[in-house]
Design a protein around this nucleic acid. Sequence first.
DNA 1: CGGTAAGCGAGACGGTACGTCATGTCTTAAC
DNA 2: GTTAAGACATGACGTACCGTCTCGCTTACCG
Lengths: 201, 201, 201, 201
Amino acid sequence: MPSRTPDAGRRSETSRRAIYAAALGLVEETGYPKTTIEGIAARAGVGKQTIYRWWGSKADVLLEAFLDLGEQQAAGEAAPGIPDTGDLAADLKLVLRATVDNLLDPRFDGPARALSAEGLVDEKLGRAVVAKLLEPNFDLYVERLRSARDAGQLRPDLDPRIALELFVAPIAQRWLQRTAELSYGYTDTIVDYALHGIAPR
Amino acid sequence: MPSRTPDAGRRSETSRRAIYAAALGLVEETGYPKTTIEGIAARAGVGKQTIYRWWGSKADVLLEAFLDLGEQQAAGEAAPGIPDTGDLAADLKLVLRATVDNLLDPRFDGPARALSAEGLVDEKLGRAVVAKLLEPNFDLYVERLRSARDAGQLRPDLDPRIALELFVAPIAQRWLQRTAELSYGYTDTIVDYALHGIAPR
Amino acid sequence: MPSRTPDAGRRSETSRRAIYAAALGLVEETGYPKTTIEGIAARAGVGKQTIYRWWGSKADVLLEAFLDLGEQQAAGEAAPGIPDTGDLAADLKLVLRATVDNLLDPRFDGPARALSAEGLVDEKLGRAVVAKLLEPNFDLYVERLRSARDAGQLRPDLDPRIALELFVAPIAQRWLQRTAELSYGYTDTIVDYALHGIAPR
Amino acid sequence: MPSRTPDAGRRSETSRRAIYAAALGLVEETGYPKTTIEGIAARAGVGKQTIYRWWGSKADVLLEAFLDLGEQQAAGEAAPGIPDTGDLAADLKLVLRATVDNLLDPRFDGPARALSAEGLVDEKLGRAVVAKLLEPNFDLYVERLRSARDAGQLRPDLDPRIALELFVAPIAQRWLQRTAELSYGYTDTIVDYALHGIAPR
DNA sequence: CGGTAAGCGAGACGGTACGTCATGTCTTAAC
DNA sequence: GTTAAGACATGACGTACCGTCTCGCTTACCG
């Protein structure tokens, strides 16, 4: 009975961390397409089999490495929610400006872009990326919008899950597809348009 | 400047068309990652060198093939603009419903998704994809929105280039990243929210 | 010195033998120029890299395969020296007749001719061919001639290394360059001329 | 009626000479294997088809070019025969020393070696090389040896066609196969051994 | 506490595709 | 009608990675 699942208890923590570091480093330095499993293994000082034993693909490795990186950074930070000062417009503008800063940081841009790209074409990976990277953020927006709606600051019949896309999708598109420049002025305008509509009042 | 440029006058039209057909066929049947230049050449009955002579990469081939396909289809069709019945909301809902239909057509989805994915990671290709696939469409929205604005149906200070993203980006995100289902109800809602804002009136 | 040398201990004996067989078979069936490394790999059921890992060129492979073939055949045979019955002329005639038989055997002719040809033009290979195919045979002649000289049957000042060429080179030339037919009568004549000179006695 | 043979009358003399020069130059500079028909055409400023129209292979071109070179040099030189001073040994030593000089001249060595190599493996070419390069020389030896025999300086029953190989083949082998160094002392010894035999007198 | 089975680094293996090069055929325009 | 030019289908080149495998080794765990 050839067991298909390796024994996670015996797994080498050192190797795992080295693989994460190697994967992130290579993607940042040489780009995702030129990053190879052989290259990761070599840089991590690890046998190829150790990677194949624990991950299914190059993208899997990178996704985990990237998530780990996120946890690492999030460790010593403030509460993860969207601030609620009562002024929805101001809160959204603040958060979106921070998002822009994040998106333009090459440490984030490289892996996130690569994972997104791979996810477009590989459905399974795409769903994982969405579930682990996007959904948690979306949930924060939903929560904040729902609270604003309940405070009477938004249409009472509003669907927050849809509404959040008005803020998030335009920015994501400019970032991912490079359709135009990202700037604070731009994100502020988006908040304004989305909140009050583009029709005359 | 001893350019390596081949003589386009001598180019074989037959081969070019065969390569387009092979590329589109293979992407549809086996997916983009499994589509190889060798495979395209073989199916097109063409030497590999003929591909390398005229294109720089697999993605380049597919982009041209896809554009050619678009022109082919557009040949016998109506005017390409967004309708202008005077009712902006209705016009937008109509167009966006048609867009959804288009996005869900596997003949379109396969290549367009693959090109988008590659473009995320390959900046040069990405810019080409945006310029040739997205911009022309964006221009139509700009035109329609500007006309509505001039007719007093939109804020007089509106920036149409930004405004169009409220309609287009959410749909693009749902399609590309599979963040949620695309439906007519959804696009109608987007038009509603974007036109009149999510705040109470 | 980070040599690229692979680990010979891990080498696959099976593959090596399959490659030898494929190389010899293809050369015999299709000729050396039409024999390709890809073809050898395919027939041997082996990856190309396995050939490139261990050999530097098609000719290298064939040389080793041919040497291996020689060892295989020599395994169950008599002593490899030139017979010494005391009658030098007879001994030489016998050996040279056997050599002619060997040269005309297509199993030998194909590879040996190909290696010789490649060796003419590729100096490194040429030296290897001479060292591994010719020199060992030459040494046998040197030994036999020296013994005859010490027995007073040859000039006391004779240089055996030069003398052997009188027997060997004419035959080699007829075989390799096809300058004329090889026959027992011919080799007998060569022995006669070389031993006693072409001048009247 | 597609004529198979091109009209030699219209042939471009300029191109032919340019091709000869290019072929010889490339073989000398880069070696025969790296010399390509495309390379010859490019250096000669000639279309590939012009080469394919008049020659059957790279080796054919080189053979003709090399023969042409020989004729060029032979134009302003002395009678081509082997001298006949009455002293056969001296005459042969002289000629063989000159032969050695010739063989070691890189202008000769390059093409001659390449043609010989190709001829070993390509029988048709080999026969042409022998007929055009070797036979004419052999004939000179036959003539000289026959004259010496008729003058009583050689065995009356001697076969000159065989005898000449005692002089020529050893030198050819040392040159082509690099089995040992060529020197005047060596050729003198060969003449001595061949004339008087290696047995004691 | 000594035996054994797992994970591990290493890397050879059969494959597939890469991008390049040369082959020999063909077409075009210029002379 | 030959020529220079060069596009074309073909096919081998040598390289890079893929994912699988086998080798000793070290390192727990268990009997």
